[in-house]
């Protein structure tokens, strides 16, 4: 599904990577080894050389916004650009079931973003991306600020996303989480990838 060949950017690569439809590949490695750089480069948020394609279609064959709607990057600390929670969703009614499943009250629509905790931001950031129905998720430590119950919901949602045929690249420091969610682990060390069993 997602193919990455000879990906090179400062501090990273050359890197090869493949994620099949319905597969979750975990990305591990020490802090500063380039895991976030990898996700950002795949999402085309930073310039990088190399071939990246989804289902055979190279990313250069489409406009960057179209690519990012298919291959969606979710940052560790999601960014906000408007005042209230609802302003960050194109279709709040469709997002609501997801939001409540993630443990937030239905009336959080009107909350000012400044009032959100780190964990609430992470969950809303994920919900915001999931409702846009991408084909591929690039998750950068999506549960780093969450308790066990919320983490379990996030893992469940990602599992459902995979069951629908979506692919996932999941950066996480947590070995137990890697074992739970991923079928393969790619380790990044000093910008180079090595496949681990």
């Amino acid at each position: 599904m997602l193919r990455v060949d000879d990906l090179v950017r400062p501090g990273l690569g050359p890197l090869r990577l493949h994620v099949a439809a319905g597969e979750c590949v975990a990305v591990a490695g020490p802090s500063g080894s380039g895991k976030s750089l990898l996700l950002r480069a795949v999402a085309d948020l930073d310039p990088a050389d190399g071939a990246v394609s989804l289902d055979g279609a190279g990313r250069e064959s489409m406009a960057a916004p179209a690519w990012r709607r298919l291959v969606a990057y979710v940052a560790t600390e999601p960014g906000w650009w408007a005042d209230t929670v609802r302003d960050h969703f194109t279709d709040w009614a469709r997002a609501l079931p997801l939001v409540t499943r993630l443990g937030l009250p239905a009336d959080c629509a009107g909350w000012p973003v400044t009032r959100l905790s780190t964990g609430e931001r992470q969950r809303l950031g994920l919900a915001r991306t999931l409702v846009t129905q991408p084909r591929m998720l690039l998750l950068d430590e999506p549960t780093s600020g969450l308790d066990d119950a919320a983490t379990a919901v996030v893992e469940e949602l990602v599992a459902e996303f995979r069951a629908d045929g979506g692919g996932v690249l999941w950066v996480t420091h947590d070995a137990a989480q890697r074992a739970r969610v991923a079928s393969r682990v790619v380790r990044i060390r000093a910008g180079r990838a090595e496949e681990a069993a």
Binding site: A43, L45, A63, A64, P65, A66, R68, R69, A72, Y73, V74, A75, E77, P78, G79, W80, W81, G125, R128, T129, T132
Partner: peptide, 14 residues
């Protein structure tokens, strides 16, 4: 506003 702008870009805004 870098984080907010890149969040929009990541969601497919031009």
């Amino acid at each position: 506003d870098r984080a907010g702008i890149e969040a929009q870009l990541a969601l497919g805004a031009d």
